[in-house]
């Protein structure tokens, strides 16, 4: 270290922390003081080495670990059950469209409830002209012509 007693000031010059006026004064002093010049050379060499070494690292991947440990940004994933349900729903819609246009259904008025109430609920019926053969099994329905419950039970 400088035996001139200015090590800390010289250090501030080397790191750029010293005010310009002080830096100029100390550099001028170091021109004539071998000890300070020697010290300043070392300090500036060390600073240069540390600076050259800095900034070479790749660290972007570390945030994920910090976030998970701190509960800051939980990974945004859909729950598997929800994904499965959505996929199943999409598949049903797609299959339904491909197979046939399903005739529109309407809920029957309670006054027109058929005997099939005992088998299925709710009770539905098709618009006029819709073929009964297209009706899905297991769903309450009613054609324009009432279908007896015994017929449905036989299916």
């Amino acid at each position: 270290m400088s035996r001139c007693g200015r090590t800390q000031q010289l250090e501030a010059v080397a790191t750029g922390e010293a005010p310009v006026a002080l830096a100029t004064e100390l550099r001028a002093h170091a021109q004539h003081c071998a000890l300070c010049r020697h010290e300043l050379n070392w300090l500036e060499s060390e600073t240069a080495m540390f600076r050259q070494r800095a900034g070479r690292d790749e660290v972007a991947h570390l945030w994920a670990g910090v976030a998970s440990r701190s509960g800051l940004e939980a990974p945004r994933r859909w729950p598997r059950a929800l994904v499965a349900m959505a996929a199943a729903a999409a598949l049903l819609v797609l299959v339904g469209r491909v197979e046939s246009p399903v005739p529109s259904l309407a809920v029957a008025g309670t006054s027109e409830a058929m005997e099939s109430d005992a088998l299925m609920s709710p009770t539905l019926f098709f618009e006029a002209g819709a073929p009964c053969s297209k009706l899905p099994l297991g769903v309450g329905f009613q054609c324009s012509q009432p279908v007896p419950a015994s017929f449905l039970a036989s299916r």
Binding site: H38, N41, S45, T47, A48, M49
Partner: peptide, 21 residues
């Protein structure tokens, strides 16, 4: 003892010097 000082302008931290560092 006083250790001789390097020339700060010629300090280049190449791979070998970084290893020693």
């Amino acid at each position: 003892a006083v250790i001789p000082s390097p020339n700060p302008e010629s300090v280049l931290l190449d791979a070998e010097l970084e290893k020693h560092f």
